[in-house]
Design a protein around this nucleic acid. Structure first.
Length: 581
RNA sequence: GCGGGGCUAGUCUAGCCUGGUCUAGGACGCCGGCCUCCCAAGCCGGUUACCCGGGUUCAAAUCCCGGGCCCCGCACCA
């Protein structure tokens, strides 16, 4: 450990609890790991982060937001592949540490179907049949159940199974058809969702880093697979990205590669423009939370780490003092995996139609049955001939006629006299395809922690949370300098007028003025307004900056507008009260 | 899930080994009052705790057992 090392995590957790940002849920019943409750200040901060994410990933992109249910019927997760990837019993070899599907091992060794057996049964069979590790012949350990989805029943029938979603994405895929329609059938289409997801983690840890119930912020961008270019990449293509690619990781190179977004695509580090584009936006968004670029990087997942649906995934990681590099976002190229699977399982057409710029005129051969002749030649078989002719590629018939003089199908010989072969021109106005999907996906709770850690500072032995001004749960603190001579009542009037304007303001008159500044600093209030004796003379108040403790005077008349400018980022602290006539 | 460490007020902690003197001590915070013309000042008063359950004992914060939670390592993290 370095000299002077202070474990900031402990201090932050203590602060969060003490000031009511967040704490472990169900404390009075002893608590339950993996669940947290956000208090008054914490939920405000989280909402600010979510709102900022909306700005970057929805509003600036022209995307749309939805809210879909958390509980979904089993069939959706059958289609999405989550059921198969989550409910399997797993057994570990005690010698070589390899892991196996326990039911597959039994099937391979005994030939019996083992799917759907309980853990105990599988364990029993492994013991009875003396099944060994198929790789090294070692002894097998206990069978574990690795089902990360929370299971429930919907309504009174136990066979009506449902699961809590482990990602919000499925909501976007399942509802894709209607959203595509109501947004007037345009690609690229970006659908976003912010919401709770649940994962029944075996062993949640590390406070906000690994929860069982948490908030996820996801976008699914649906694009034409024949045009994977991202029109907005050019706006940000010179922005630098820090990459640790899978190749580099395979060579144990951890020092990130610094390339521009454009280079990363051109040199093939990032498989698609959309991926690169979102990684830049991701950098902007995370940086706007006050998390310095030095503490960010993108790490590509190794092939075996990737989710079943992903072609390429880059994790956006943030360096945290206690936990090291922590994933806060994943940028995945999901291809057409999900829509395809939902098409197969729902039997609903989820393809989209795209009009060509110019309709294409194509020549095409059409085979028209000559009904009378067919009827008289084939009698009862005529119906069969008609349907066959409908389904066969006309070109095959023509080729066969040219070669052999007839076309034979199922013992039926069609001769040129039975049909009329014509050339027809056809106008094709577009094509149908399954869109491909790019997905940036963020963990809101991890971002809350990372934001707090990066804003945590100590000044003159006091804690100052240097939250970006647009994230601060409380924007302004209003104090009377002392509790006499009518200062409190004036201060309260100022406080109320700020609140009326929609500024989140607090009033505090307990203790000394220094104590109040300290209390406000600790929860990251950017600006304190102090009403003093000067106020009674010239109607000005003191503004004090949280980070510099610098003070300026400003007239009460201008106060609200100046503060609104400040919080919208139009003015910095030093500029307040100036040129405001 | 395995192994190690821990849990005393809002927060941090003393006490635990060696049971009784603990109606559990301190600091900070918080609330009320006084004071106070700008950075956790001072004075007075108030506030709040032995993680839960069982056992041993005349007597348990202290010893034993089970459970919960937190931290660390391993495993897990589609």
């Amino acid at each position: 450990m370095e000299v002077g090392y202070v474990d900031i995590y402990e201090k932050i957790v203590e602060l969060l609890k003490r000031r009511g940002f967040l704490w472990p849920s169900f404390e009075i019943y002893g608590g339950l790991r993996g669940f947290v409750t956000y208090g008054p200040l914490g939920i405000e901060l989280k909402h600010r982060i979510e709102e900022k994410w909306r700005e970057w990933f929805i509003y600036k992109q022209g995307f749309v937001e939805i809210e879909s249910p958390i509980i979904m019927p089993e069939v959706i997760f059958k289609a999405s592949g989550h059921l198969d990837h989550f409910t399997d019993p797993v057994v570990e070899c005690l010698d070589c540490k390899r892991k196996f599907r326990a039911d597959h091992i039994i099937e391979d060794a005994t030939g019996k179907v083992a799917e759907g057996l309980g853990i105990e049964e599988i364990e029993e069979i492994i013991e009875k049949e003396n099944i060994k590790c198929p790789e090294c012949g070692g002894r097998l350990g206990k069978v574990g159940q690795f089902n990360l989805m929370f299971k429930t029943t919907i309504g009174p029938y136990s066979e009506n199974r449902g699961y809590a979603r482990p990602e919000a994405a499925q909501g976007m895929f399942v509802e894709f058809k209607r959203i595509f329609t109501v947004t007037r059938e345009k690609l690229p289409l970006g659908i976003a969702q912010i919401g709770k997801v649940l994962r029944n983690e075996i062993s949640p840890r590390k406070g906000l880093i690994r929860l069982r119930e948490f908030t996820i912020m996801e976008v699914e961008v649906f694009v034409d697979p024949e045009d994977l270019s991202c029109p907005k990449l050019s706006e940000v293509e010179d922005e630098e990205l820090k990459l640790v690619t899978a190749d580099m990781r395979a060579r144990n190179e951890e020092e990130p590669l610094i390339v521009t977004a454009r280079e990363a695509v051109d040199k093939g580090y990032i498989s698609a423009e959309w991926q690169a584009y979102f990684m830049v936006i991701s950098k902007y968004f995370i940086s706007s939370l006050g998390i310095p670029w030095e503490r960010q990087r993108f790490k590509e997942q190794m092939p075996w780490e990737k989710a079943h649906y992903s072609k390429q995934t880059f994790d956006h990681e943030i360096y945290l003092q206690r936990f090291g590099w922590v994933e806060v976002a994943g940028h995945a190229y999901r291809t057409d995996y999900d829509l395809k699977r939902h098409m197969e399982h729902s039997r609903v057409d989820l393809t989209v139609f795209k009009r060509f710029k110019e309709p294409q005129i194509i020549e095409k051969i059409v085979v028209q049955p000559l009904k009378e002749i067919i009827k008289s030649d084939f009698g009862d078989n005529a119906q069969k001939v008609f349907s066959m002719l409908k389904n066969v590629n006309p070109m095959d018939i023509k080729v066969s006629f040219d070669k052999k003089g007839y076309y034979e199908f199922d013992g039926i010989r069609i001769e040129p006299k039975h049909v009329k072969i014509e050339k027809k021109t056809e106008k094709i106005t577009g094509r149908r395809f399954i869109p491909h999907v790019f997905e940036p996906s963020f963990g809101a709770d991890r971002l809350v922690y990372a934001t707090l850690e990066c804003s945590y500072s100590v000044k003159e032995n006091r804690v100052v949370l240097k939250l970006p001004r647009d994230l601060a749960p409380i924007q302004v603190a209003v104090f009377p300098l002392v509790n006499k001579d009518n200062l409190p009542s004036t201060a309260q009037r100022v406080w109320m007028s700020l609140r009326d304007e929609g500024i989140r303001a607090m009033y505090d008159n307990s203790g000394s003025i220094g104590r109040r500044y300290a209390r406000a600093d600790e929860v990251g209030v950017p600006i304190a307004v102090t009403i003093d004796y000067q106020t009674q003379k010239d109607d000005t108040v003191t503004l004090r900056d949280r980070d510099t403790w610098q003070q300026i005077r400003i007239s009460v008349h201008d106060l609200t507008n100046e503060l609104l400018d400040y919080f919208k980022g139009r003015k910095n602290f030093e500029e307040l009260g100036k040129s405001s006539k």
